[in-house]
């Protein structure tokens, strides 16, 4: 968990440690996708705020595979190219629910702490 995303563009948000994995899980919630597709998805969904560095993406995918939260298989993409598609496992789905609610609590707590005192 020592990987900290590093983005050259100053204006872009740095991903908090550990959040990339949750984002990957989320991106696979509806359909299986390959590494390129995942990075495109995250970039588009965040209105270009997150740009996923491949140097973080690939190790993160490996970690998720290790934990059994995602599975991979080779498939042919709609435009006829063979790619490695990742999909959520049952454990991954559970983890996503858990991580989402934790994240919401964290955000709320941060908000309360940071909110200007009345």
């Amino acid at each position: 968990m020592s990987t900290v995303d590093y983005l050259p563009e100053e204006k872009r948000l740095e991903l908090l440690q550990g959040t990339l994995e949750v984002l990957i899980l989320r991106s696979l919630k509806l359909e299986a996708n390959h590494a390129y597709g995942i990075s495109q998805f995250l970039q588009q969904q965040s209105d270009n705020e997150f740009v996923v560095d491949n140097g973080s993406l690939y190790p993160a995918l490996q970690r998720l595979l290790q934990r059994g939260w995602i599975a991979a298989q080779w498939k042919t993409s709609p435009n006829g190219r063979r790619a490695r598609y990742y999909n959520l496992t049952a454990a991954g789905r559970k983890q996503l629910v858990k991580a989402t609610s934790q994240w919401e609590r964290f955000v709320a707590a941060m908000a309360r702490v940071l909110a200007p005192e009345g």
């Binding site: 390959h34 590494a35 390129y36 190219r81 790619a83």
Partner: peptide
């Protein structure tokens, strides 16, 4: 091998 192949595919998506 799998990684190389996967990255190759990734590159081709980008190039495309």
């Amino acid at each position: 091998e799998e990684l190389s192949e996967e990255m190759q595919a990734h590159l081709e998506f980008l190039a495309e």
